[in-house]
């Protein structure tokens, strides 16, 4: 009985002592923090992807709470809805941004772009690109070692084993921009996410002269400018032998797609064209 009492006293006393210690330490080292930061952090997706430009969701919440004007801050993962919620809670004006999606601007698959040497270093686009121009005649195009896929926190990017090119899963893509930063060639771009996943873009970043570009890759943009001429909305500029479609002006009329002699302009998500047109287009692509 006596030992029981001793045990209870010792254990109980020890517990009380430690509790007191914990209490005192917590009190002494208490950091005054705006409780709203916690709340805002809960509203953010918690992916810690860094897509907003901050180290993580916590840092972003601190910025959202501390800054009066949050129009420059945006969480690409949570999107408009999330930002509205946060802005509403904080009583600030919500920044508005259109939903975006990552687009890989290279169609240099193994068929389109013959390999003329073989890279045998660490499996990293960064290593390969810092070493030399690349496996193909096109020094601008995708290296295909998948740095973008590795960096994607959301599993939205994967290298297609047949084409050797990365593919974006629009559903999973949050437009955090990690792949854009990871790509040493600057091929990936964030473009406006149109309804029904419609996309029209120049799937090439080759700035070589037409003949050189074409020799290196069947589907290269040769900078001929036909697309720019045909575009009724002035959305296409050709600079350094390369066409670029400004997504804020593009009305998705698809005139440029038909006009492009190399098939470098890609359309996605559209219903099939009328048979005649479709045939002409596809036979055109096969022949090239």
């Amino acid at each position: 009985m006596e030992s029981l009492v001793t045990t209870v006293l010792i254990v109980g006393g020890l517990g009380a002592l430690l509790a007191l210690l914990l209490f005192l330490v917590a009190k002494k080292f208490y950091v005054e923090e705006d409780p709203r930061i916690d709340e805002v952090e809960k509203m953010l997706p918690g992916a810690n992807c860094g897509g907003c430009g901050f180290a993580g969701c916590r840092a972003m919440s601190e910025a959202l709470v501390s800054k009066d004007d949050i129009s420059a801050l945006f969480c690409p993962v949570g999107g408009d809805e999330c930002m509205k919620k946060v802005a509403g809670y904080l009583g600030k004006a919500a920044p508005e941004k259109e939903p975006m999606v990552a687009v890989v601007r290279c169609a240099g698959s193994c068929d389109n772009r013959p390999r003329n040497n073989r890279f045998d270093g660490a499996k990293s686009c960064l290593v390969a690109s810092s070493l030399y121009a690349g496996e193909t005649g096109c020094p601008f195009g995708c290296i295909g070692l998948g740095d973008c896929a590795v960096k994607c926190e959301f599993g939205a990017l994967s290298i297609n084993p047949v084409t050797g090119l990365p593919e974006v899963d629009d559903e999973k893509c949050t437009a955090c921009g990690a792949c854009v930063k990871a790509c040493p060639k600057g091929i990936i771009e964030l473009r406006k996410k149109a309804k029904r996943g419609l996309k029209i873009y120049v799937s090439c970043v080759n700035k070589d002269k037409g003949a050189v570009a074409r020799k290196a890759c069947k589907v290269a943009c040769i900078g001929c400018g036909k697309c720019a001429k045909v575009c009724p909305h002035d959305a296409i500029v050709v600079e350094n032998n390369l066409a670029y479609i400004d997504y804020s002006k593009c009305k998705m009329c698809r005139k440029c797609v038909v006009e492009c002699p190399t098939g470098a302009i890609v359309e996605c998500g559209f219903p099939p064209r009328k048979v005649a047109e479709n045939d002409a287009n596809s036979s055109n692509k096969v022949a090239e």
């Binding site: 390999r115 003329n116 040497n117 073989r118 890279f119 045998d120 270093g121 660490a122 290593v127 070493l131 030399y132 496996e135």
Partner: peptide, 11 residues
């Protein structure tokens, strides 16, 4: 491997 294709690797 294709003998025509040179191997490129870092030193």
């Amino acid at each position: 491997m294709d003998s025509q294709k040179l191997v490129i690797s870092p030193a």
